[in-house]
């Protein structure tokens, strides 16, 4: 994906302004920043859920908004909310998304994923009765369902339980090999060292730092982040 001078304005306040960001295949980019820095807004624009006000945004080779529908086929989006119907079961939710994304051999793929996120025993209970961590693991399965080439994660660690976090980290670790990319918006700066290759810090809608993580440990990343937003 490639963003060039991208911005978005809510009313008369610019939530994101003049952002330039390129993410190449196999790269994992972490976006950090204080509340209201525009991280989630930027992610929603990349997820084709919000139009760019200014600049051009290209995702998976498709320029938005014109190519949004083709781009959506290759995007996996993990939001704060599980994006699942509470009165349907995990399996029924995944069936819906399999239909929407045109997933081949859907039943096998769904069973496979439910197994991986350890929900197969609860596959037919309504999502309403599942715990928050379970629902978020379902969201993880939903995100991976159509084998997306670009993962967009909004605060993934805030709502995932330990099992979910381990799964996600394992998934992110394999991304290099098969040329998929990820953008991770996060508060938990310490985690960046283990899940991302690049650190981007946003402040008041603008990118203030964009540099490789390059083997820094959690404490060093935290120190660097504090320095950036000071």
């Amino acid at each position: 994906m490639s963003a060039c001078g991208v911005g978005h304005i809510y009313g008369e306040r610019a939530a994101v302004a003049d952002v330039h960001l390129d993410v190449v295949a196999g790269e994992r980019v972490a976006i950090a920043g204080p509340n209201g820095a525009g991280k989630s807004t930027l992610l929603r624009m990349v997820a084709t859920l919000l139009r760019t006000g200014t600049g051009t945004l290209t995702v998976l080779g498709e320029e938005l908004p014109g190519g949004a529908r083709r781009a959506r086929c290759g995007i996996g989006y993990l939001a704060h909310d599980p994006l699942a119907y509470l009165d349907l079961s995990p399996r029924q939710n995944l069936q819906l998304y399999a239909d929407l994304f045109g997933v081949q051999d859907a039943d096998r793929r769904i069973d496979d994923l439910l197994e991986r996120v350890d929900l197969i025993a609860r596959a037919d209970d309504p999502v309403r009765v599942l715990s928050r961590g379970m629902a978020q693991r379902l969201a993880l399965a939903r995100m991976l369902l159509h084998e997306p080439r670009l993962l967009l994660l909004d605060e993934p660690h805030a709502s995932l339980d330990a099992a979910g976090t381990a799964l996600l980290d394992a998934e992110l670790a394999t991304m290099h090999a098969d040329g998929r990319a990820a953008v991770i918006v996060t508060h938990e700066v310490e985690r960046i060292a283990s899940v991302a290759d690049r650190l981007v810090v946003m402040r008041r809608g603008r990118i203030v730092v964009d540099e490789p993580v390059a083997g820094r440990g959690p404490a060093q990343v935290r120190a660097r982040y504090e320095e950036c937003i000071a």
């Binding site: 083709r70 086929c73 290759g74 119907y85 009165d87 349907l88 029924q92 069936q95 819906l96 399999a98 239909d99 929407l100 994304f101 045109g102 997933v103 081949q104 159509h146 084998e147 080439r149 098969d178 040329g179 998929r180």
Partner: peptide, 25 residues
């Protein structure tokens, strides 16, 4: 991992969405 992008058919999408609404109801 296949790189080929699935081309979802709208008939399947429509059927999936209707099935979802009726299941909820």
């Amino acid at each position: 991992m296949s790189m080929a992008v699935n081309r979802p058919r709208w008939t399947r999408q429509l059927a999936g969405l209707i099935r979802k609404d009726l299941r909820l109801e």
